[in-house]
Amino acid sequence: MDMIDRYLNAVAAQLPQDERADIVAELRDLILSRFEAKEEELGRPLTEDEQEAILREIGHPLVVAARYRKGPDSLVGPQLFPYWLFGVKAGLLVLLAVQAIGLFIHLISGTDDAGQAISHAFHGFFSSGLTLIGVATVAAAIFEQYDIRPKWMTQWRVRDLGAFGLSDPATWGAKVGPMEPLKAPPAPWARPRATKAWPGGEYLFSFIAVGMFSLWWVGVLHFPGLMHVQLLGEDATVTPAPIWSTLFVPILVYALIQMSVDLNSLFRPYAVRLRALARIPIAIAGLWLTYVIFQAGHWFTLTHDGETARIAGDWVMLDFDSLRTLGRLGDGARDLVGVASTLSVVMVWVLAFSAISLACSVVFNLWRLARG
Score class of each variant (00 low, 15 high):
Trp156Thr: 15
Ile208Tyr: 06
Tyr270Ile: 12
Arg56Lys: 10
Val88Asp: 02
Tyr68Gln: 12
Asn264Thr: 10
Trp172Tyr: 09
Pro186Ala: 10
Gln79Gly: 09
Val292Arg: 14
Lys196Leu: 10
Pro240His: 07
Lys175Glu: 12
Glu144Gln: 09
Thr308Gln: 00
Ile118Leu: 14
Trp216Cys: 03
Pro192Lys: 12
Gly173Ile: 11
Leu80Met: 05
Ala194His: 07
Pro224Gly: 09
Ala359Trp: 03
Val238Met: 01
Leu266Pro: 01
Trp244Pro: 10
Leu96Ile: 05
Leu62Asp: 13
Leu80Arg: 05
Val253Thr: 09
Ser265Gln: 00
Ala65Glu: 08
Leu221Asn: 13
Pro181Leu: 10
Trp288Tyr: 10
Gln155Val: 04
Ala190Tyr: 02
Ala236Asp: 01
Met259Gly: 03
Leu358Gln: 11
Asn9Glu: 09
Glu50Tyr: 02
Ala236Phe: 11
Ala197Leu: 12
Leu92Lys: 04
Tyr203Gln: 06
Trp216Phe: 08
Trp315Phe: 11
Ile101Gly: 11
Ser206Glu: 04
Leu95Lys: 03
Gly71Met: 14
Ile118Ser: 06
Leu247Asp: 07
Ser341Trp: 06
Pro224Leu: 07
Phe125Lys: 00
Ser357Arg: 09
Asn365Ser: 06
Gly115Thr: 01
Phe104Val: 11
Tyr7Met: 15
Arg28Gln: 12
Arg275Pro: 01
Phe125Ser: 00
Trp189Ser: 12
Gly225Ile: 02
Phe122Cys: 07
Thr301Trp: 00
Phe353His: 05
Ile251Trp: 07
Ala174Ser: 13
Leu287Asn: 02
Met227Ser: 10
Asp29Val: 05
Arg368Leu: 07
Ser260Tyr: 00
Thr131Cys: 07
Ala65Ile: 10
Leu27Ile: 09
Gly91Ser: 03
Gly173Lys: 12
Pro61Arg: 02
Met3Asn: 07
